[in-house]
């Protein structure tokens, strides 16, 4: 009871990075709350899966191995997790804000009538004073996320309902091995007992898993464009610069919404979080929704014709000027000095 649970995501026998990131965060929260960290692994042919999970600090791994749990479908996963939570009564449950987590999380939270906060960018422990009800709450999970298009940052709490559930996007938390030799307990979930016949009504007829064609996350240099680029055509100049520097092209949400770039390139709270060596922000105003996904870049260069753009405040170098004129100058200077 009162432990922290991480619902792991498993693809081809491998625990997803986002789950390992959440285990890392879960471990530090568990230490702070003086409780145990437990993981849930559902799927089929999971033999040995706990070996991937224990090094990240899990005290218990609950394994549900059944062919009806592979591939992921909503209803069987919901039944197993809801029943397990009713029995184990966790205080906190974390899952990745992936297509799986964002499908499963709300269903589970609705069934348990517990709260769920999507796409958190930070999780902290803190107290809360309800002045109206004159109640003091200790050690709540602060679920922190930008909202309203990134114009505000909200701290959300679930004072009365358990578990306190949150989803977090891949790359937002850091993944760190707790101890290579750490071992916990394996508990086998009696899947048969939890699954109902009506849980398997949704049938996956066909499935292509494609590895991400575009993967800006691992690029050490990112040239990113915003709405200020003006058009999809103007975006091509960013590809030119990225190619010369050996980087990838990113985009802000506004640019993606406007059709200037593919969604896979979106940096920010609802896109990917990146930590490149160099981030060049072109025509990006710098709303927090965007900066939440790039502020840990080692170096930021902002190119913008608005000297008051918020992005300038987090930039190491600010170039105030026209992007379409500045970038060719950068390319020229780079070529001249590397040959």
């Amino acid at each position: 009871m009162d432990n922290i649970f991480v619902i792991c995501e498993i693809e081809d026998g491998k625990v997803a990075d986002v789950s390992l990131e959440l285990l890392t965060k879960g471990r530090s929260l568990a230490n702070q709350l003086n409780c145990q960290l437990e993981a849930i692994a559902l799927g089929h042919n999971l033999k040995g899966i706990e070996e991937q999970i224990f090094p990240y600090g899990a005290d218990v791994v609950h394994i549900g191995d059944d062919k009806r749990l592979e591939p992921f479908t909503t209803l069987p996963y919901t039944s197993v997790i809801v029943e397990l939570f009713k029995k184990e009564k966790p205080q906190i449950a974390l899952l990745g804000a992936t297509t799986m987590g964002r499908d499963l999380g709300p269903r589970v939270s609705s069934a348990l009538q517990s709260g769920l906060t999507a796409d958190c960018t930070a999780l902290e422990i803190g107290d809360h004073e309800d002045k109206k009800a004159k109640k003091h709450y200790k050690n709540l999970l602060y679920q922190i996320r930008p909202a309203f298009g990134g114009n505000i940052v909200a701290t959300i709490i679930n004072p009365d309902c358990r578990p306190q559930m949150a989803t977090v996007r891949e790359g937002v938390m850091k993944k760190e091995i707790f101890s290579k030799t750490h071992k916990g307990k394996v508990k086998v979930i009696d899947v048969e007992k939890y699954l109902k016949p009506e849980d398997t009504v949704v049938r996956i007829v066909e499935r292509h898993i494609e590895k991400n064609r575009i993967n800006i996350k691992n690029s050490s240099i990112i040239v990113s464009g915003g709405y200020g680029m003006g058009s999809k055509e103007n975006f091509s100049i960013l590809y030119d610069l990225a190619e010369v520097l050996g980087g990838e092209v990113g985009a802000s949400r506004a640019a993606v919404d406007a059709g200037f770039a593919e969604h896979d390139r979106q940096v920010g709270q609802t896109g990917v979080t990146v930590r490149p060596k160099l981030y060049i922000a072109c025509g990006i105003s710098g709303q927090i929704q965007h900066t939440a996904g790039m502020e840990e870049s080692s170096m930021v260069i902002a190119i913008n014709n608005d000297p008051a753009a918020p992005i300038n405040k987090i930039a190491d170098f600010v170039i105030t000027g026209d992007v379409m004129e500045t970038i060719p100058k950068l390319i020229k200077a780079y070529k001249k000095n590397t040959k």
Binding site: V153, T155, I157, Q287, I314
Partner: peptide
């Protein structure tokens, strides 16, 4: 509503 907004912060850039 199980979730409550504890605090809203206006975005301030450091």
């Amino acid at each position: 509503s199980p979730t409550k907004v504890k605090q809203i912060e206006n975005v301030v850039f450091q």
